[in-house]
């Protein structure tokens, strides 16, 4: 499915970016060209690497042992890492620490970059519509 001006406008609203009428068609063309290229490539990848066959490269003339190097099935949660201790280490841990209080930034430091502030608070336009 080709990307249309409407898709781009919808995306722009979500991304909070304004697009003028003059720039819309050129922008859509640019994005379309990139997305189409990527789609074709990823479809080609799907044809070449079969998920049910352990992403075996079907065009590769030299067959390797899939049990040794490839996942049985695509599962990013359980990488087959037992042959490589470094990777095992890399994949296995998350760097956590005790949640201890430590030095923090002062209010003044934090507010110093604020475009608009009042009494130590960020000033913004009214967020909730007020009905009397």
């Amino acid at each position: 499915m080709e990307i249309t001006d409407k898709d781009v406008l919808k995306t722009a609203v979500i991304a909070r970016i304004n697009i003028s009428e003059e720039e819309l068609s050129k922008l859509t063309d640019n994005i379309k060209r990139i997305i189409n290229y990527i789609r074709n490539k990823l479809d080609e990848f799907d044809e070449r690497f079969d998920p049910e066959q352990s992403y075996f490269d079907k065009t590769d003339s030299v067959k390797t042992n899939p049990d040794k190097f490839y996942f049985k099935k695509f599962d990013p949660g359980k990488p087959d890492i037992k042959n490589n201790t470094e990777i095992e280490h890399f994949a296995a841990t998350n760097a956590l620490r005790e949640d201890m209080p430590e030095s923090h930034f002062s209010r003044e430091d934090m507010m110093a970059n604020a475009p608009d502030s009042e009494d130590g608070f960020f000033r913004v336009p009214k967020v909730v519509p007020w009905k009397s």
């Binding site: 990307i3 898709d7 781009v8 995306t11 722009a12 979500i14 991304a15 970016i17 922008l27 640019n30 994005i31 990139i34 997305i35």
Partner: peptide, 10 residues
């Protein structure tokens, strides 16, 4: 940057 944000959002 805007182009990449739009592509990323899409």
């Amino acid at each position: 940057v805007k182009n990449r944000i739009l592509i990323g959002t899409y």
